[in-house]
Simulated assay, not measured.
Amino acid sequence: MHARADGQGRPLGFVLTGGETSDYRAVPDLLAVPVNRPRRMLADKGYDADAIRQELFFHGTRPVIPPRSTRKDPPPCDYRVYKDRNRIERMFNRIKQFRRIATRYDKTRLSYAGFLALAAAKIWLPHFVSRA
């Protein structure tokens, strides 16, 4: 499961791939999520590739991805901005509080994606309720 989140750690969209599939394959689908173009993409080392960085720059998005330890000439990473990635990890934690998602009870991809959408709606709901 790959997710796109806003600056507050609220889910905007999900891309489902197989467990053995590389993280690289999810990036075009994550960028195609129909929301505003992101200014930055905070991702872990699994997304570190020159092709991904070029595609992000092409879309006007600044990659904030730490380089893999095996790179010969690692690109720079703004670690002060990268600290905000914990919001994404907290979003995954909130999503996985739903037992059905954490244990993957659903047999089909479609039903799993449907419950991901329900969990995302439940996370977004407090932001639409009046706190008066």
Rank of each mutant, 00 (worst) to 15 (best):
A49Y: 02
A49D: 09
D50E: 13
D50Y: 09
D50W: 01
D50H: 08
D50F: 00
D50P: 01
A51Q: 08
A51Y: 02
I52Y: 01
I52S: 02
R53H: 12
R53I: 05
R53Q: 11
Q54F: 12
Q54L: 13
Q54H: 12
E55K: 09
E55F: 03
L56W: 09
L56Y: 03
L56I: 09
F57R: 10
F57W: 07
F57S: 06
F57M: 06
F57N: 07
F58K: 14
F58P: 01
F58H: 15
F58I: 12
F58C: 11
H59T: 08
H59Y: 10
H59A: 11
H59G: 07
H59W: 13
H59R: 13
G60Q: 09
G60P: 04
G60C: 04
T61W: 00
T61A: 08
T61R: 06
R62S: 11
P63T: 00
P63F: 04
V64D: 00
V64C: 10
V64M: 05
I65E: 00
I65M: 05
I65K: 02
P66R: 12
P66Q: 10
P66E: 08
P66N: 13
P66G: 14
P67D: 06
R68T: 00
R68L: 04
R68K: 15
S69C: 08
S69H: 11
T70A: 09
T70P: 02
T70F: 08
T70L: 06
T70Y: 13
T70K: 13
T70R: 14
R71P: 00
R71E: 07
K72P: 03
K72S: 05
K72D: 08
K72C: 01
K72I: 02
K72T: 03
K72F: 00
D73K: 10
P74M: 07
P74H: 04
P74Q: 05
P75F: 01
P75V: 01
P75E: 12
P76H: 10
P76E: 12
P76A: 15
P76G: 11
C77L: 04
D78S: 13
D78V: 04
D78E: 12
D78T: 00
D78P: 09
D78I: 08
D78N: 14
Y79L: 13
Y79I: 03
Y79R: 10
R80I: 03
R80T: 12
R80F: 12
V81E: 15
V81M: 15
Y82H: 13
Y82W: 11
K83M: 08
K83R: 15
